[in-house]
């Protein structure tokens, strides 16, 4: 798998660069990433085990304090909900997109891709306007006579889940779309020729073959959702705090950096483990290729 990807992406042919030139061309990249990514993350992990003195205390506090465990579990639960909702909303769109042609296809593609390139902050703010007690959703429901009392929507867990799904949906749709597109159209035709109904063709041919896309999209959404900051910070309630808000509180209000570092450490290690376990299904090239 790794080799296959390599041959696709880092294909080397023609006259190769010398080792020295290769190194020189790669040097800025490695230097930058080492300085701005690897070092700060490592420093954070070091702070979490060395301050105020060499200790496992900061990590013990994450695990032993029920508050922190609750926040951690709630974060995982929220991410799971967002992922599930994204699959349910995203799969049909990806399927439709993979079979559409011409103007329809372009229109759908724009709808999916435009949000990806518009500001997360703008989208979150938009949801906060929609969710207000006298916002669009409540106004609409009341003028349709569906409810006489406005619902409390803003500062709830549902608000956070819906807005995060909105922000992350393209990360689900694009990998599934990629997987669906790579299924040769002969397969469906062959199944039809053999007498399968469309539903059966879908369930027994298309769905299994698109699963790698679903897994890849789900992982992307789940991993991003775990560390999400802006949306829970603006739309959530402290009663349903997520880990990133807790980290921000520790850094900016309680001023307990070593403990914040430990929280971030737990988060980073967990996410990295997941990414390593599923490294074969995570197709970033597909996402990035389609996103632009």
């Amino acid at each position: 798998m790794m080799e296959a990807r390599r041959s696709h992406f880092w294909r080397s042919d023609g006259r190769r660069l010398s080792g020295l030139s290769t190194l020189l061309l790669l040097l800025p990249f490695f230097a930058l990433v080492a300085f701005v990514f690897v070092y700060p993350i490592l420093q954070l992990l070091v702070i979490s085990i060395l301050e105020p003195h060499p200790t496992s205390e900061n990590y013990a506090r994450v695990v032993e304090n029920p508050v922190h465990m609750r926040v951690l579990l709630r974060t995982l639960w929220t991410a799971t909900l967002v992922t599930a909702l994204s699959v349910v909303l995203g799969f049909p769109v990806a399927y439709y997109m993979s079979r559409a042609k011409g103007t329809v296809a372009a229109l759908v593609a724009v709808c999916v891709i435009l949000p990806l390139w518009s500001s997360v902050l703008v989208r979150t703010a938009a949801w906060s306007f929609l969710f207000q007690r006298n916002g669009l959703i409540n106004s609409a429901l009341m003028s349709l006579g569906l409810t006489s009392q406005p619902f409390k929507l803003l500062y709830t867990q549902s608000a956070v889940v819906i807005a995060m799904t909105h922000v992350l949906l393209p990360f689900m749709i694009l990998p599934i779309y990629g997987a669906l597109r790579s299924i040769p159209s002969d397969y469906a035709r062959a199944a039809a020729v053999l007498g399968a109904t469309r539903l059966r063709t879908f369930l027994e041919v298309i769905l299994p073959l698109s699963l790698p896309g679903v897994v890849s999209g789900s992982l992307l959404v789940f991993l991003t959702a775990i560390g999400f900051f802006i949306t829970p910070a603006l739309l959530g309630s402290p009663q349903e705090m997520m880990i990133s808000t807790l980290v921000s509180k520790q850094i900016r209000e309680v001023l307990d950096w070593p403990f914040a570092a430990a929280l971030v450490g737990v988060l980073t290690v967990f996410v990295t483990l997941l990414a390593v376990i599923f490294s074969k299904t995570l197709r970033f090239d597909r996402l990035m290729g389609n996103a632009s």
Binding site: V36, F37, P40, I41, Q43, L44, I47, L223, T224, I226, G227, F228, F229, S244, V247, S248, I251, W257, A260, A261, V264, L267, T268, V271, T272
Partner: peptide
């Protein structure tokens, strides 16, 4: 790696 982790690391 979550952006919040990178952000906090870079902040310090």
């Amino acid at each position: 790696v979550p952006h919040i982790a990178l952000a906090v690391g870079l902040y310090l």
